[in-house]
């Protein structure tokens, strides 16, 4: 039998290396985010029609894009887990789903805060908003299924299949909501049209912001994966100790 004590020690030095790498990554991310804040508040021009609130756009759009990316990663990692049966893939799927839920929540909240001054209502059943809400519901269910599964093994497989179904569902939801809305149109005034013709300065700041927030998301996913790894280690060690203990 392999000594879990030694394995944990080896894991510790590995973890320490990983932690120092993640510290550097965190510092770089923080620097980028500070620069991003400077660009958003100081450099970006104030929108003539919408006023300062338009600056939400620079975080709202990247956060939404990254949450979709997170669920894509989650679905792919889920498929990889089902094929390979490797804990690593499951950790990645779990971490990216959890970070994805945080991001999609923020996308909804910043969207609502955007909608009030710009559209005059807190909420509108606009296709993108509605799809995002459905996405949020699906991935909250994904996290619930992990929590409610009687064994970790079942939790891993179930959440993988829920992730796959959820991801297939998203484009269908989007098109159905769009068709539905085209029958009962909502009044949408404002920056919808701005999407295709952004000024170069605006699109450049947007891309910078996307990169900075993407790095933040990567940091959070890595941190979450390391936490999961530590928790898995504890469970494993407990189990081995129980098996080896003469009392049991």
């Amino acid at each position: 039998m392999a000594s879990p004590g030694r394995r944990a020690a080896g894991g510790n030095s590995l973890l320490r290396a990983a932690r120092s790498a993640s510290l550097w990554f965190l510092l770089l991310t923080a620097a980028l985010l500070l620069a991003d804040g400077y660009l958003i508040f100081m450099v970006a021009p104030t929108d003539a029609v919408l006023g300062d609130v338009q600056r939400i756009f620079y975080i709202h759009v990247p956060i939404s894009i990254i949450s979709f990316l997170g669920f894509f990663v989650c679905a792919v990692a889920g498929i990889a887990y089902l094929i390979r049966r490797s804990e690593r893939w499951d950790r990645l799927a779990h971490a990216s789903a959890e970070v994805g839920v945080i991001f999609v929540t923020l996308a909804l909240v910043t969207g609502v805060i955007w909608a009030r001054p710009v559209w005059g209502v807190w909420w509108t059943w606009e296709p993108r908003l509605t799809t995002t809400l459905i996405l949020w519901l699906i991935y909250v269910a994904y996290l619930m299924i992990r929590h409610y599964a009687p064994t970790p093994q079942q939790g891993r497989s179930w959440s993988a299949v829920v992730g796959i179904i959820g991801f297939i569902d998203v484009p269908i939801v989007y098109y159905s909501v769009q068709w539905w809305r085209s029958i009962h149109p909502v009044q949408v005034i404002g920056p919808e049209a701005a999407d295709d013709a952004l000024e170069p300065i605006i699109s450049r700041i947007l891309i910078f912001s996307l990169i900075a927030i993407l790095m933040l998301a990567c940091y959070l996913v890595m941190e979450r994966m390391m936490l999961r790894a530590a928790e898995d280690n504890i469970t494993e060690l407990r189990r081995q100790q129980q098996d080896a203990s003469p009392d049991y």
Binding site: I165, G166, D169
Partner: peptide, 25 residues
């Protein structure tokens, strides 16, 4: 899935409704 958990009554609708939104629409 839901039947194998303790909270099957709540888990089934929570999983079911978001996914079938396109059908309902």
């Amino acid at each position: 899935i839901a039947v194998q958990t303790r909270s099957r009554e709540i888990l089934l609708p929570v999983l079911f409704f978001p996914v079938v939104v396109p059908i309902i629409i």
